[in-house]
């Protein structure tokens, strides 16, 4: 992760109930004055205008808002501002380096692991979380890792082929 020390302070109209939180967003340190119970998804999409992370069910049941928090996959709709303080958040915008597609993104592109694309950023994050922990997962492990990410278009066929390809390419690299 990029450890640049830039600190962006986003000025909001502070009220006495606001809290100041600081966290790393895709490698950049941010400070924000927000309602403590604001959802992380609203910080990401609303405050920071990073719209790659999507919102669909709002109750952690679809995975469209999946992001990484301290290296773990989380639903941004279930995490609140006060919990984000001092954490490292990575969104879909933060996973490719030097404008190159990540191996997983490339695999999704080539294998048709998406159609409407709305679940795709969350799905890519879930695959990343899987492969980060387990570079050669079994069929069961793939299924479990993606069980919280719903896709309505593909029927998961293209997604499974994408994951298999990403695993293969990842292993070829090593």
């Amino acid at each position: 992760m990029d450890e640049s020390r830039t600190i962006d302070i986003l000025t909001n109209k502070s009220t006495d109930r606001h809290i100041l939180i600081s966290f790393h967003m895709n490698g950049r340190m941010l400070e924000l004055s927000v309602e403590p119970t604001m959802r992380l998804i609203d910080i990401i999409r609303g405050q920071l205008d990073l719209t790659g992370t999507k919102i669909s069910c709002g109750i952690g049941r679809c995975g469209a808002c999946s992001v990484m928090m301290d290296g773990h996959l989380v639903n941004a709709c279930l995490v609140m501002a006060y919990q984000v303080d001092q954490s490292q958040i990575t969104t879909i915008e933060g996973i490719n380096t030097n404008n190159q597609l990540h191996t997983i993104q490339k695999a999704f592109l080539e294998e048709g692991g998406f159609q409407c694309g709305y679940c795709t950023p969350g799905m890519v994050m879930a695959v990343k979380a899987l492969i980060y922990e387990n570079s050669n997962p079994t069929e069961e492990e793939i299924k479990e890792a993606l069980s919280g990410n719903l896709c309505r278009c593909t029927g998961y066929g293209g997604i499974i082929r994408s994951v298999q390809r990403a695993i293969k390419e990842g292993m070829n690299k090593n």
Partner: peptide, 12 residues
């Protein structure tokens, strides 16, 4: 625990 919710929810 494997049968509770999803990996992302179990992380929280």
């Amino acid at each position: 625990i494997s049968d509770i919710a999803s990996p992302a929810v179990r992380n929280r």
